[in-house]
Design a protein around this nucleic acid. Structure first.
Length: 321
DNA sequence: AACTCCTCCAACCGCACTCCC
DNA sequence: AGGGAGTGCGGTTGGAGGAGT
């Protein structure tokens, strides 16, 4: 097990960093920048290799790091980005300001992965308990969605739809589904398609998904990878949807969509919000600022079981309005 | 109190890539 | 072209500390 070349040239300290070492590194980089990392330890008076200094700075000492537990919205974003990007932690972390790839990776491995496995097992039970009532034709919605712009290999600059009380770079659009598609275009394609994807507003009568009062009776058995999520629902629901894989062609099992609401465009169905909260609550941790006390009022019957519920993908365009 | 087990996360390791000579 | 240095990234490890017995 050889060490990195830069570490062989001198006796280097290993293991945890002491506060004194941290201070030296901070002082040096604050004054001079890091420049060539291999030179940093010598110039900063540290018995470390440059690689270790770089890691310590990037993962721990950088002033713009956001410390503390991941919030539920961050967890949701990580889940969705991981669905799209896989274990490309650095790419995922770019969408989470103040978070590092290491942090995201650790969070995934220590928290999310475990919960997903538990939920997959739970969902397997749901399939038997609550079989879907939808006709095959209700896949109609999926079939109408075409992803015209392939996802770029490297996603464009970081976005954070959860910050700032707005939708960041995402342009508002007049129609719910157009919003979703524009979002997908804008988030994943550096050159948004000037002709947005056409999505029919009125499907054939026979294909109409259930109206939302029926929602309690229809449970979506799919796993979390197909989870349509939204957040900031206490203040004002802002639906979030991210893209589906462009290839192979989306199927009902890998295409995800649902209602998109933004400020002024209506609100989410209370059960929808409850379900999202239920799932995200499982990621809530001490530092989370999310409040679970301000449930939106609703008079619908409670769900017949506890725990996360996944949204039915065949919900109508105006679902929740 | 003492011990074991488990979880979390900071840090390390090796590989791949880019840049420069 | 090719080799070395520097950097970035993902997988893995090891230890601190909490939970359980």
């Amino acid at each position: 097990m050889g060490h990195h070349t830069c570490c062989n040239k001198q006796k280097v300290k290993r293991g945890l960093w002491s506060p004194e070492e941290d201070e030296k590194l901070i002082n040096y980089i604050s004054a001079y920048g890091h420049g060539c990392w291999s030179a940093v330890p010598r110039l900063a008076g540290l018995q470390r290799c440059g690689k270790s200094c770089r890691l310590r700075w990037i993962n721990y000492l950088r002033p713009d790091l956001k410390r503390g537990s991941f919030s539920p919205p961050e967890a949701a974003l990580i889940i969705e980005l991981h669905r799209i990007l896989g274990n490309r932690w650095a790419q995922i972390a770019k969408h989470l300001p103040g978070r590092t790839d290491n942090e995201v990776k650790n969070f995934w491995n220590s928290s999310i992965k475990k919960k997903l496995l538990q939920q997959q097992a739970a969902n397997q039970n749901l399939i038997h308990q609550y079989p879907l009532k939808f006709s095959p034709n209700q896949n109609y919605y999926y079939n109408q969605i075409q992803i015209q712009n392939p996802l770029p290999i490297n996603p464009p600059p970081p976005i954070n739809p959860f910050q700032g009380g707005g939708l960041g770079p995402i342009e508002p659009a007049p129609a719910v589904h157009n919003n979703m598609m524009m979002m997908m275009n804008n988030v994943y394609n550096p050159n948004p398609n000037p002709n947005p994807i056409q999505i029919p507003i009125q499907p054939p009568v026979d294909d109409l998904p259930p109206t939302w009062p029926d929602y309690n009776e229809n449970y979506f058995e799919n796993d979390i990878n197909n989870f349509m999520f939204s957040f900031n629902n206490h203040e004002k629901a802002k639906g979030i949807l991210f893209g589906a894989p462009p290839s192979p062609a989306p199927t009902p099992q890998d295409q995800v969509f649902g209602p998109f609401t933004a400020a002024g465009e209506g609100s989410l169905h209370p059960n929808h919000i409850n379900h999202i909260e239920s799932l995200m609550g499982s990621f809530a941790s001490g530092a989370s600022s999310s409040s679970s006390s301000s449930q939106p009022g609703n008079s619908l019957a409670p769900l017949p079981f506890s725990g996360p519920v996944f949204l039915n993908p065949s919900l109508p365009p105006n679902w929740g309005r």
